[in-house]
Design a protein around this nucleic acid. Structure first.
Lengths: 227, 227
DNA sequence: TAAATAAAAATTGTCGACAATACAACTTGA
DNA sequence: TCAAGTTGTATTGTCGACAATTTTTATTTA
């Protein structure tokens, strides 16, 4: 009986999985900590069955690691793992950008240009304070991913990889020291997509993500924000 | 109490997940069929608990889809899904080839050349009958993937994506009509890796996989081998 | 006959209890 | 004192039973 709102899902298991995922991503359950079934079950007011099922799902998402007869632990963030994750993200989002440049409808291109204009305006108004776009519908990357039209790719990126990616964002200090640069890169990517230049869109997206991973790496080297 | 050998895993859940996975990939449990918890539990001689856990894992692997209060169904293979899967595979294995060209040790390069020679000899001896390399240690692709050194990439490709990919291989007729062409492509990829030409290795791997998906598509259009 | 409703059966979701395993503390013997 | 073995406790793995939901079947009505 802990968390604020318990959005009612169809089953307890889904509900718990969702809550646990958020708790881990946002650091309420610290990295490397042990997941005690009995404890969490009592905490969330359910029996161990659904909770266990939720943990198995989290293992599939890569948020926890499980060992037989020992239990589950929250993953620990480190630079090597981050680089690995971002290498995969580079490959997959690059492909998404390529596909998007073939399939994105004109209206969505227009809407995305408007979105970038809004971001620009935000930066102008807020003294370059970087905008947070964590998974909302106004996240440029998510829009590109969805425009790829590849449902499997969408699922993998948005439901699996992004859980870990958000975790890295949450646990490291504000790494975007030059949000205008990121915005310029977004605009270049969108230009390529608008012109249906798949190769270029992929290239630019990969560079963009590669650069982000380097920035994140630097941020992690300086200080890993401990929960 | 059905399957031939029940390799003893640490937990029943792992054991069942493994067996179910094989049964689905090999078509012993037909596509689109319903997974009845009670029935399978009796069949494998376990209670519904571990079996349920196994099903949740299979859902994570994308082998079954689950809907609340209704149950799990084996996925149904179709061309669109196949193309989606192979698009992801193209992106990820392309990245793997790129990384492998940076990290693969000389000895492994030599061993892989020998492996390709063996394949060549096999084709010469067996009248171009295509060699089956389903997930064994002599699978060229798996060796490249492992040489990438990216553990997350390895896990995703070998444990998740390849389950579905093997399923497509199993359920479609012999699609490789020109195994020598595939071998030539493998050799070209390995050449690029040996020369540490990451860009080229990635490009060639992507072309290779793209070509394979086109062949598979043609095979599926002609006849989907029903179980 | 067909559609709509209600009862029944089957299946999934959840729970509490027991068994098996792992880890810690303690004892024993050299 | 230290190593090995033993016991005890805590945690996970598994099970069978009950509750909730869906699907099927039977019944009623237009």
């Amino acid at each position: 009986m802990s968390n604020l709102v318990s959005v009612k899902f169809a089953t307890l298991s889904e509900d718990i999985a969702q809550q646990l995922s958020r708790a881990i991503v946002q650091g309420h359950i610290p990295q490397g900590s042990k997941i005690s079934e009995a404890e969490l079950a009592k905490q969330y007011g359910v029996s161990r069955g659904p909770l266990r099922e939720a943990i198995v799902k989290l293992e599939g998402l890569g948020l926890v690691t499980r060992t037989a007869n020992v239990g589950a632990r929250v993953i620990e963030l480190n630079i090597d793992d981050m680089l690995e994750t971002f290498a995969m993200r580079e490959a997959l989002e690059g492909m998404a950008a390529r596909l998007a440049s073939e399939k994105m409808p004109e209206e969505e291109v227009t809407r995305l240009y408007h979105l970038l204009d809004e971001h620009q305006a935000y930066l102008d108004a807020n003294h370059d304070e970087h905008y947070v776009q964590q998974g909302g519908n106004d996240d440029f990357h998510l829009r590109i991913i969805h425009a790829s039209g590849n449902t499997k790719l969408i699922r993998l990126l948005t439901e699996e990889l992004y859980a870990v990616i958000r975790m890295y964002r949450h646990h490291t200090a504000d790494q975007r020291r030059d949000p205008r640069q990121a915005l310029r890169e977004h605009r270049a990517i969108l230009d390529a997509i608008a012109n249906h230049e798949g190769d270029l869109a992929e290239l630019l997206m990969r560079r963009h993500i590669s650069r982000a991973s380097q920035l994140l790496k630097q941020a992690m080297e300086q200080c890993l924000v401990k929960p």
